[in-house]
Structure formats: C-alpha cells, structure tokens
Design a protein around this nucleic acid. Structure first.
Length: 1037
RNA sequence: GGGCGGCUAGCUCAGUUGGUUAGAGCGCUGUGUUCACACCGCAGAGGUCACUGGUUCGAGUCCAGUGUCGCCCACCA
C-alpha cells in the first residue's frame, strides 16, 4: 500500500464502522466460562429504556470499556455484561404521555395488556437505539449475553427472590403514606418528587370546642396551607408541655449565641426577644388547652358534622402558627406519625386515586378536585364565621418528576421488605472491606443511608413491571377465617400431591386478621406458576395488581444476568464481579440494594469494588437534561469529533472531584461554527448563527417552518482536544508508515540504539508504568494526560523529529525502522483502551508493512490490537543518564529557539551559538550537535567552561549554563536590552527571596540539611545567572 | 437543619506524603507552510492559588472560621 496517499485528516467515521464489525465478527468480546484465565467482570448499569443515551451514559460506559479493554489486553478472561432496565415509572410515564398527546388516549382506554404491549414496542425501539449508541461508542460488551430487567431470566430471579424473602418473613403488608401522583395514579418514591417553593396562603381557622367550661376558650385556632384536608382531620394537637418546649428553644438559642459571630448575635438576640414575647402571649392559653386535652375534650369539626379529640402531642410546636395543629393522618406524613402514637384517633382517607374527593368527604364536596374543594371549604368556613385570617406565605409545593403534576400524600396498602438484617449485612460488607468504594468518601453516603434501616416499600401501582407474585382473598368473620385456613391446608396437600414438591419450597401462605372481628386477608406467594395456581384462583384468590419497584429487579442484576437461581457455569465463574462503575446518585437506590440481595441470594457480595465517577454538568453547573435543552447527544459528538475524541475527552476530564463542567455549544449546520449555548437560546425553537447569520432548528422546533430548517447539533468544543489528539496520532502513524517502507524485522543490538532511541525506550517504560497504575486506581485523567503528553510532546515533537534524518541514511535506516515500529506498536497498545478505533486502524496499517516487530525478540503482532498484550514496563530500559542528557539538550534547544523568535530571525538563516557550562554538561551536549542543526538550524561552536560569547550575541541564562547566540547579522538591540533587563530584575528578586530565607535563623536551624543546601545552591546559581545577565547587558549597551 | 464537594490563568481543569520561580488544553499575541500533521510547528504574554486567622523555619497543600456555588439526605401545619 502506498501510505503517502493516506489522507492527512483521520476519517473517524469509516474506521468506526469497519473495526467494530471486525471485532464482533471475531468474537473478541465473548467470554467463555470454560476459559481458565482469571476472570475480570463488569455488569453494565443498565440504561433505562426511557430514551436515548446522554453524555452521562457516554461517560459511564467509556470508563467501563477502558477498564474492560485494558484487562482483556492484560490477559484476563473478560466479561462485560450488557443490558437495559425496564425503568417502571419512567417508561410507563413516557409512553402514557405520548399516548395522551398523540392519540388522546389514557391507559384505561387500552387496558393493562394493551398498555403493556405498547410499552414493549417502545422498549424494542429504544433498546435498539441504545445498543447502537453503545456500539458506536466502541463498548466491548458481550452482546450474546444481552439481558433486560423484565426478560424471562430476570423475571425468574425476581420471583425466586421475592418468594424466598416472603418465606423468610421478610416481606409484610402494611399501610403507608405514599406520594400519590393523581395523573399517573400511582405512588412515586420520594426520590421522584420535586419540591419547589411557590407563593401560597396560610389560612387560620377556628374549630368550636364542645362543652367548654367557664374560662376556657370556646374555639381552637389552627392554621394550614391546605384547607381542604380539614375534611380528613381526626384530631387537633397541642404540645403536652409548652413551657418546657419554650425553655428548650431558649436554651438552644443561648447555646448558639456562645459560638456566634457579632453579626449573628444581633439576629439571635432579636429571635430570643420575639420568642419571649410569643411565650408571654400564648403560654397561658396553650397550657389551658393542654389541660383540656388531658381531660378528653372534643371539638366540632366544621362542615362534616364529626367530632374530633383535642390531643397532646409534641408534634404541635408552640412557637409556630397558633400553637395548635390539625391532624390529618391520611394526607400528611407528620400527622401520620402522630396517628402512630395515638392510634385511637384513626385516619380518614378523603381522596380517590384520581385526586377527587371520595365518599368520606361530605356529599357537597365529593367528586371535586383538591383545588376546587379548597375554594369551597374556605368559602363555607368563612360563611360560618370560622375563618380567622389569610396570610400570604411561601410554601413548598411537591410535584411529580415524571408527570409534573402535584403530589398528594395518600394512605395506601403496601408491601414492604424488612430491612434490619439485610441492611446490616450490606453495611458489614463495606465496613469490613469485602466491598471497596472509590473514592472512599462515598462509603459514608452508603453507610448513612443503610444505617437508617428503613423498610423498603416494594410495590408500585403500575402496569409496567414484575407483577407481585402474591394472590390474596379477604375474609370478614371467624367462620370465613376458619374456611380459609382449612383451604390452605388442603391446597398445600394438593400441592404436595400434584407437583411432588414440598409446601416450603413452592408456595407460602400468610394471613392477618383483626383480633376482634376476625376480618382479614389471606395471601399465597407462589414461587412459580405451578399446579397450585389454578386451585388458588379457583378458591377466589386474585393476584395483586401492583408491580415491584424497578430497583427490585435492578438489585439482582449482578447475579440474575448470570443465570441465578440456576447454578450455571457463568454464575460459578463470573460471580462475584470485579468492579461496578456508576454515578453517585444511585449509591443508595441501587448499589446498596445489590449488595444486600447479592449477600442474601448468593451469600457473597456482588462486586469487589465500586467506582463512583463524576457527573457531567453544563457550563452553568447545571445537570444536563433534555427538558432544559442543554443535553448533549453522544451521537452528535461522535459524528462531529469521532467516538475516540469523545472517549478521550471523557477520560481526560474524569478526575476525582464530583463534577465535570462542560461548555455546551450549538454547531451551526451551515458554516460549522460553534456557538455558545445560553440559558435563553437553549430554549428557542430556532437559533441564528452568530457567524454566518443563518437560522437553524433546535430540539424544540414544532412549527413546520422551524422544522424545515437544518438541525443544529448540540455539542461541546471540549472534545476538540480528543479529536486533535487522534489526528496527531494519525499523522505520526502516517509518517511512520511512509518511512517504514522496506522494513524487515530483526533484533536491534543495544549499541545500535541511538541516543533518542534509548531516551524513548526509557520514557516508554515510565509511561507504561504510570498508565498501568493510574488505570488500576481509576485515575483515568492521569492515564489520559500521561499518554497525551508522551505521545505528543515526546514521541512526536522530539523522537520523530530527531529520528527523521536516519531514514535517508542507508546504513541507519533499518535499525531506525525497527525501533520506530516497536515504539509505535507499544504506543498503540497503551492508547487502545481509551481510543480503540484509531489505534486499530493504525494497527492494521502497521501490520501491512511490519507484521513482525519488536527490538529484543521480534514477534508476529496479534491480528488485532484489541487482543494484543498490554505492554510491560521494562525496567532495564530506564536510563537516568539519558534522560538527564535530554533535559539539558531540551533546555539549550529551547534557549536557542527563544532567541531566534525574540530576535525575529527567520528559519532560513542559520545560527551559531556557544554554551558556557560545566565540563560534565558539555559532555552531554556535544553528542547532541546534529540535533541542534536539525531542530533549530543552529550550530553549537563551543561547549564548556571556557566557551566564549560571540562579539554580538543574544543570551539566555539557564541554571548552570549560559547560551550565547551569535546575532551579529540580526541584532535588535532594543529588544535584547528589554529582555535582559527584565530577566535581570526577575533574577535579582529571586535572589533576594532566597537570601532572606537563608538569613532566617529558624529556617537554617530547623529545615533538613538537604533543603538548606538546596537553597544555598539555588542562591549561588541565581547569583551566577544574574552576573552573566548583567555582563551581557553591559556588553550589548 | 445535617452531610459531601468545588473555589488555582479569560474558560475548563491538573497540582502526590507541606520544600525550586504553581502547570496543561482551549482562547489570546507574534511568527512560520515543498520536506507526517494549520485538527500543525516555534516562541510569548497571562496567576494576591476565594477570604480571615492559626500551626510551621517554610502553606495552593495541614487546622479553624467566613464567603460563595453546587450536590445528597431530612424537613417547617
């Protein structure tokens, strides 16, 4: 092949297509459990099938791929298990929203099966897209093992786990106040609730006291932001000891004052004063009310005809509102807690699932939406003369992250998983080091959350998910209860007969009832749909409507994907996995739960290490999201810059801090210019290019005239770094390939190695070491930066420049080629995990000219860099002497170049220079003579202590050296004087600084001798330099 | 309210256990294209390391506090 005809710009698009296919065809990504090599396993955090992947996914998966490719090259039996997550609420919400928008249909129009079928279609579409994206990114997953959290294999694992927990008594049914989304008609988790401060009102009402004694208040005033909930009130509370509560507040304030600053103290004082005033104003009344509560006084709940008790509970804060608080256990989390302490008050749910008031509300309000009911209640109370006042106030409004509708707290039946023992086991795994979290600080997040050991509500009122494998039936008296029990015994017997299995292993019965009435509910949990199912359904049991929390199936991911509960060879070989790579926001939701179920089901942690990577934010520090319009699609970046550029950029940015900020730009489809995205323009349907003035459309385009415009991709210039790097590498390779013409493999004897050869091999060893260590510690930025500097500044800027000349010298050419082929080979291996495509492209080209390479023992290179061996750092190649020689050379070269630039001397003009330096330095510099000519068009005419400066010279002083460039033909005296004066001032200042340091007795006495000596040397050095600068100055002026 | 993290060049970020005159990329300035690469080469300018105090011979680095931005958790009827 004629390498000269290769384009000077790397064509990433062609390479990506070609080589990904090549890898897949050869099955490099497939892991065989029979392979005896030590396994290295990662399970992918399964992306939600909600939509396409974003830049965060690109980050997450790039890092995993780097690790996997590196370990694959390092000789591990490598498995990267891919898959996607059904993401219950998120996916159902997206599909339902589209259904409504596009077809004006609700899920009830389609029915359960119809909706689920629709979601499966959606899933297929997006899964395909997600997998394509991962492949374009270069991810080397074992695609033959692709899983989905809702597929049959995962379903089996879910069912098995639920059954075991149920049998174990770790699953129970209870009441729980949930965040009810009235649009989706489902409970959403706390994590899916967004709170926002909005302007609202604070209504004060009074409830009449029944049979108040003389001297006692006839009304109790309460305040609320949600008046309609009063219809569900079951009590009003007052603090049991308001005086003590006030005392406590006061002493807390005093305590704060002790440590407060002047400024704060004023504020605190004011606070203390108002507290005292308040105490004086309300205390007598509150104490009276408290006494009344203890006496068992009842209040009339207006509008309802009900009476409710006045109770004493600490939840009522004497310093807030009226000092009394209405209690609505069914619709407020705190009130719910009060009910737990005072079970006698009961709870009344006044809401229907769709957010309208139900039959528990007075007839007048039934069927009204909450807000309508609010207006009606306020009006009616006002009419009854019970409205005291309306305050304006900022309130926290909760709404659903999924549907964007307001959230109503709502009391519902829920299935729970008992967390005490499970959580403890997961905590122990981290505290005793079986699971290591990096960076370490995140272990705290994990432990704190698990430490609360809050039971896990696992039911979701959705249709998309794993349906809870429990069948239930209600009974309402002792006779029915006895029937149910009798039935259970028979069913169990039938079970044993029909299926030949024991009761314990296949189905599990559980029931609870009210001890007074014997009314209750009976449940069967079935391990699978065995013969008992028909019998159970025949006796009137119905399967639960709810599905399991998505995290329930995600929690099993590391073992369910490997085949659990079957004892598959994969499970034996690949569990536990090696490392989990994920982002910090799901440490609790996902990581902790995987550890706990892994321990429960497998008796072993699911992974040895957890690496938490940063999050990607835009330049305002905001998280990227489609709804903000600042989301960057990895495919746009790949198209513009290439997958390798994206990957390199990501690795380069992945440091240990929490976040990565990325400036976000539109790319003009007309002129290709990048233009900053601002908070304003990122919301527009069309944007005009700053540069060419042409308009283009954004993701918001809806009108036909906007949609007709070409699309402006959203990208980030940050990826230019990676693109430029790949291009640099490409051109270095092109140069190498051109010069490898006529290459023949063969060993290179040590004394055939030139200075630059030995230097490069020495540096290569160091870099190999650095990169290997950095990747092992998840310091991806260090690895990328190390390789970038080495490839660009050492391999290209020095090695290639210096070795160039040898290719035209016949007797040197072959040795030079052999070293070059070897060096390029090593560089490609080191870079491959980060930039797989360009390295493969070059690897294949290199194979055409140099299929056998290596300088000690040439060997045939592997057919793909993907499976090539990871380089080992060869200590013998490290050569401090050579590196020193290079440092001196580079310093002098830099000085000569600077003089040339400063004096504005063209490269066409040759220069002479002398270096006054020690004999030792001279000895290092002399052999470099040809390189000065080659790289700076300059000839060193004298090196050593006696080297004299030419008559008219421009000088640079370096530590231990003076470089004098003969500029008799070119001198720009003014520039030189200016430059020297500046240098003199700097040196003088520096010398003064060190002088001061050394004059400090404390320093000389206390600092280690070597540090003091270092400073003394430095001072001498600086003074020497100063003298020579002054001499040069004197001479020139 | 509790916890975590950031604050270093115009921008985005490095900076190991305290010890040379604090670095990189982009951007900027000057300059250069027959001779791998203008997605390039060569050179340059640019920093009160957020602030205050402390420890130390010595602090970007350690400690305390302040400010500020962000994230997580718990929450004000």
């Amino acid at each position: 092949m004629d390498f000269k005809s290769l384009p000077s710009q790397y064509d990433h698009a062609a390479a990506q297509q070609k080589w990904y296919q090549f890898w897949e065809e050869r099955d490099y990504f497939h892991a065989d459990p029979a392979d005896p090599r030590e396994p290295f396993v990662i399970v992918i955090p399964p992306p939600n099938v909600t939509g396409a992947l974003h830049l965060g996914h690109a980050l997450n998966n790039t890092l995993q791929d780097i690790l996997i490719r590196w370990k694959r090259m390092s000789g591990f039996n490598t498995l990267w298990m891919p898959g996607t997550d059904h993401a219950g609420i998120a996916t159902q919400a997206v599909v339902e929203r589209r259904l409504l928008e596009e077809e004006k249909l609700s899920r009830h129009d389609l029915g359960r099966d119809g909706l689920v079928a629709r979601i499966w279609k959606w899933k297929d579409q997006y899964e395909t897209r997600i997998l394509a994206q991962l492949k374009q990114l270069g991810c080397s997953c074992d695609w033959q093992r692709l899983r989905f959290t809702l597929d049959d294999q995962c379903a089996r694992a879910v069912r098995e786990t639920f059954f075991r927990l149920f049998q174990d008594g770790k699953i129970y049914r209870g009441k729980r106040l949930v965040n009810w989304d009235t649009f989706l008609q489902t409970a959403v988790s706390d994590d899916e609730v967004i709170r926002e401060t909005v302007k609202g009102h604070f209504w004060h009402f009074k409830y009449p006291v029944i049979d108040a004694r003389p001297g006692e208040p006839e009304f109790v005033t309460i305040a609320t932001t949600r008046p309609e909930t009063m219809l569900g009130d079951t009590a009003v509370a007052v603090h049991p000891d308001p005086a003590a509560a006030f005392d406590e507040l006061s002493s807390k304030l005093r305590e704060e004052m002790l440590t407060a600053s002047e400024k704060e103290r004023a504020a605190l004082n004011e606070e203390a004063d108002s507290l005292l005033a308040r105490r004086a104003a309300v205390l007598p009344m509150l104490e009276k009310l408290r006494d009344m509560a203890q006496r068992g006084v009842k209040l009339e709940l207006p509008l309802t005809g009900r009476t409710i008790p006045l109770i004493a509970d600490e939840w009522a804060k004497p310093e807030l509102g009226s000092g009394c608080v209405k209690i609505t256990p069914a619709h407020d989390a705190n009130d719910y807690e009060v009910w737990q302490r005072h079970s006698e008050i009961g709870a009344i749910n006044i809401l229907n699932p769709d957010g309208t008031l139900n039959d528990s509300a007075p007839e007048k309000y039934r069927g009204l939406k909450m807000l309508k009911a609010r207006d009606a209640v306020v009006a009616d109370l006002e009419a009854a003369g019970l409205l005291v006042e309306i305050e304006n106030r900022e309130i926290d409004l909760a709404h659903s992250d999924r549907s964007k509708m307001p959230i109503e707290p709502y009391l519902a039946d829920q299935w729970f998983v008992k967390m005490d023992e499970l959580a403890q086991s997961a905590m122990d795994a981290v505290t005793d080091g079986r699971v290591k979290i990096t960076p370490e600080r995140y272990a705290k997040t994990y432990l704190d959350w698990l430490g609360e050991k809050r039971d896990w509500p696992v039911g979701r009122q959705l249709w998309w998910g794993h349906r809870i494998p429990v069948w239930s039936k209600n009974f309402s008296n002792a006779a029915e209860k006895a029937n149910v029990e009798e039935e259970a015994v028979q069913l169990a017997a039938a079970e044993i007969k029909d299926a030949g299995a024991t009761l314990e292993s296949n189905s599990c019965f559980y029931h609870y009832w009210d001890p007074e009435t014997f009314a209750g509910t009976a449940f069967w949990c079935l391990q699978n749909d065995h013969a008992n199912l028909a019998a159970i359904e025949k006796s009137g049991y119905k399967q639960e409507q709810d599905v399991l929390d998505t995290w329930f199936s995600s929690a099993l991911w590391p073992h369910s994907t490997l085949g659990w509960p079957e004892p598959t060879p994969e499970l034996k070989r690949f569990y536990p996995t090696s490392v989990l790579v994920t982002s910090r926001d799901i440490i609790t939701l996902w990581v902790a739960r995987m550890v706990l179920t892994g321990l429960y089901n497998m008796g072993e942690v699911p992974f040895r290490e957890v690496y938490i990577h940063p999050k990607i934010l835009d330049s305002y520090g905001e998280t990227m999201s489609k709804s903000k319009g600042n989301g960057v699609d990895p495919l746009d970046v790949i198209e513009k810059f290439g997958a390798d550029a994206l990957r390199f950029g990501i690795a380069y940015l992945t440091t240990e801090t929490q976040d990565v900020r990325l400036p976000v730009e539109f790319e003009c489809p007309h002129c290709g210019a990048l233009m900053n995205q601002t908070k304003q323009n990122r919301q527009l349907p069309r944007v005009k290019c700053d540069k060419c003035g042409e308009a283009f459309r954004t993701q918001w385009a809806e009108k036909p005239e906007d949609k007709a415009l070409p699309r402006g991709a959203v990208v980030s210039e940050r990826f230019e770094l990676g693109r430029n790097f790949c291009n640099k590498l490409w051109n270095a390779a092109r140069f190498s390939l051109i010069n490898l013409e006529g290459y023949e493999p063969g060993p290179v004897a040590a004394n055939d190695l030139t200075i630059e050869d030995r230097w490069l091999l020495s540096r290569l060893t160091t870099v190999t070491d650095q990169v290997t260590v950095a990747q092992g510690e998840y310091r991806f930025a260090d690895a990328a930066r190390g390789l970038y500097d080495f490839a660009w500044n050492e391999f290209c800027s020095f090695y290639l420049e210096m070795t160039k000349a040898r290719f035209s010298v016949p007797e040197q050419r072959l040795a030079a080629q052999r070293v070059l082929a070897h060096a390029l080979d090593a560089l490609l291996r080191l870079l491959h995990p980060i930039v797989p495509f360009v390295t493969e492209e070059i690897w294949q080209l290199l194979a055409q000219v140099a299929p056998v390479r290596g300088i000690a023992k040439p060997q045939a290179a592997e057919e793909s860099v993907c499976i090539a061996a990871w380089p080992e750092a060869n200590r013998a190649d490290q050569d401090a002497m050579i590196e020193e020689q290079f440092a001196v050379f580079q310093a002098v070269l830099g000085a000569v170049r600077e003089v040339r630039s400063r004096q504005n001397i063209s490269m066409k003009d040759e220069l002479n220079f002398t270096v006054r330096c020690s004999d030792q330095a001279a000895k290092l510099l002399r052999p470099m003579q040809p390189y000065f000519t080659q790289m700076a068009r300059a000839t060193g005419t004298a090196f050593g202590p006696d080297a004299a400066a030419p008559d008219l010279s421009a000088s640079m002083t370096l530590p231990g050296m003076e470089v004098h460039v003969d500029v008799s033909r070119f001198i720009d005296v003014k520039a030189e004087v200016a430059r020297l004066s500046k240098e003199r001032d700097q040196l003088a200042q520096f010398a003064k600084l060190i002088d001061g340091k050394l004059a400090n007795k404390g320093f000389v006495d206390n600092a280690p001798a070597e540090v003091v000596q270092q400073q003394r040397d430095k001072l001498a050095e600086a003074r020497g330099q100063l003298a020579s600068v002054e001499a040069a100055l004197g001479k020139i002026s």
